[in-house]
């Protein structure tokens, strides 16, 4: 099964392109800051200026030029990649784990003595899915000021698990009624053991599919927060904030907006391709 999936993945050229982009980003995040050779948060007022007296464009010392505060753009992009990837991956992990646990518990409790747990959790999911998060996050974000990477991870992770929980719950309901699960319950195995041994492996497939699609969404979400200025506080470099700050200069120095914009786009594209490749490899309906 796994081997066939792997082969399907390899044959899928889109997925391979996605893998290459993602690998490139990982490399950029890992060694880019070293290659750039400048501190991302230090202004260099001695550097060359552009024709208008503003921060200079690409030069040997600064391959992508300087940002509006005379800092090295390449170095900031590389540090931004770290933020985006970290948020994308960890927030997905948080979201998927919470969704999986809630979904499995809820599905397991349904119709039994603990049925109220299922109802309560599903009402919570209802509410969660109807919530205008962006509004709330903006309200809280503009009041907090002290946003850290942990805050971002929690906000993104904890507001996005509701759909997952629903899917996992229905999958759990299915698995629960399978003969071998019913049998092991009858043999007196504790619930947690059955959940772990039988249910989890069966919901793992959908979870992987959800997770691989979710990374791209998380990267977008982080950049939207940063773009709306409720992300990580300065001087931390994030792509969304760089785009927002560069936008006002796009008539004179378009690279300031284009570079982070392209980075966001590529990051999302890479994970989208990769995610779809994973899904098709695990769920080969079409071939």
């Amino acid at each position: 099964m796994e081997r066939r999936a792997l082969r399907r993945f390899q044959r899928n050229r889109g997925a391979v392109v996605g893998l290459v982009i993602v690998a490139g980003l990982l490399a950029f995040a890992a060694i880019g800051p070293l290659l750039a050779g400048h501190d991302p948060n230090t202004s260099d007022f001695a550097a060359a200026r552009d024709g208008l007296g503003g921060p200079g464009g690409p030069s040997r010392a600064h391959p992508l030029g300087l940002d509006p505060l005379f800092r090295d753009l390449a170095s900031r992009l590389a540090h931004g990649a770290r933020v985006s990837l970290l948020v994308g991956l960890v927030a997905t992990a948080v979201s998927v784990s919470v969704g999986a646990v809630v979904g499995m518990v809820s599905g397991w409790a349904a119709d039994g003595r603990a049925g109220f747990v299922d109802s309560a959790l599903m009402r919570l999911v209802d509410v969660g899915l109807s919530f205008p998060y962006l509004l709330l996050v903006m309200a809280i974000g503009t009041a907090l000021g002290d946003v850290t990477i942990v805050t971002i991870l929690l906000v993104l992770g904890l507001t996005s698990w509701f759909g997952t929980a629903r899917i996992v719950r229905s999958k759990t309901l299915q698995v629960r009624s399978l003969d071998f699960v019913v049998a092991s319950r009858a043999l007196g195995q504790p619930s947690w053991a059955v959940l772990l041994r039988h249910v989890l492996p069966n919901v793992a497939g959908p979870l992987i599919v959800i997770a691989s699609a979710s990374v791209a969404q998380m990267i977008i979400a982080e950049s939207v927060l940063a773009y709306l200025q409720v992300g990580l506080p300065p001087p931390t470099a994030t792509w969304g904030r760089m785009l927002q700050e560069g936008q006002r200069y796009y008539t004179v120095a378009p690279r300031l907006a284009v570079a982070p914009g392209l980075c966001i786009f590529l990051g999302v594209l890479g994970f989208n391709l990769l995610g779809e490749g994973v899904r098709d490899a695990l769920d080969p309906k079409e071939t």
């Binding site: 391979v16 378009p254 779809e276």
Partner: peptide, 21 residues
Amino acid sequence: RSIPRRPEATRLGVAILGVAL
């Protein structure tokens, strides 16, 4: 849903965005 099978697709996508930018 399926994913695009062709790398050309990706290349075109990047090219269009590049031109727009």
